Computed example of a mutant assay.
Amino acid sequence: MDEQWRADLAGWGIPEEIAAKAPVDPWGYSPARFAERTDRALADPEGPTLTRVAEALPRGGSVLDVGAGSGAASLPLAANLGELIAVDPSAAMLAELTSRAARLGVPTRIVNGRWPDVAAETPVADVAVAAHVVYNVPDLSGFLTELSAHARRRVVLELTERHPMSWLNPLWQHFHGITRPARPTVHDVIATAEALGHEVRHERRLAPLTRFADLDELAESACRRLCLGRDRADEVIATVIELDMWPVPRDQWFTLWWESM
Rank of each mutant, 00 (worst) to 15 (best):
A79S: 15
A79N: 09
A79E: 15
N80Y: 13
N80H: 15
L81I: 13
G82D: 02
G82W: 09
E83H: 14
E83Y: 08
L84Y: 06
A86D: 09
A86K: 10
V87R: 08
V87E: 06
P89D: 11
P89W: 11
P89T: 12
S90L: 11
S90N: 09
A91H: 14
A92T: 11
A92D: 15
M93I: 03
A95V: 14
E96V: 12
E96I: 13
L97Y: 14
L97D: 01
L97A: 11
T98H: 10
T98G: 09
T98W: 12
S99G: 08
S99E: 14
R100F: 07
R100I: 06
R100K: 15
A101Q: 09
A101Y: 06
A101T: 05
A102I: 13
A102T: 14
R103D: 04
L104G: 00
G105P: 03
V106M: 09
P107K: 11
P107F: 11
P107I: 10
R109I: 03
R109H: 08
I110T: 03
I110H: 00
V111N: 01
N112L: 14
N112G: 01
G113S: 01
G113C: 06
G113F: 07
G113K: 06
G113W: 08
R114V: 07
R114H: 00
R114Y: 02
P116S: 03
V118E: 00
V118Q: 02
A119K: 07
A119Q: 07
A120N: 02
E121W: 01
E121D: 06
E121S: 04
E121R: 11
T122Q: 00
V124D: 00
V124F: 06
V124E: 05
V124L: 09
V124H: 02
V124R: 12
A125K: 05
D126I: 08
D126F: 10
A128H: 01
A128K: 01
V129I: 14
V129T: 04
V129C: 05
V129W: 05
V129H: 04
A130D: 01
A130G: 08
A131L: 05
A131V: 08
V133T: 13
V133N: 03
V134A: 11
Y135D: 00
N136M: 10
N136S: 11
V137R: 01
D139M: 12
L140I: 13
S141W: 07
G142F: 12
L144V: 09
L144P: 04
L144T: 05
T145K: 15
T145E: 15
E146Y: 12
E146I: 09
E146P: 01
E146L: 13
L147V: 07
A149R: 15
H150M: 05
H150F: 04
H150V: 04
A151G: 05
A151K: 00
A151T: 06
R152Q: 10
R152F: 02
R153S: 01
V155Y: 00
V155R: 00
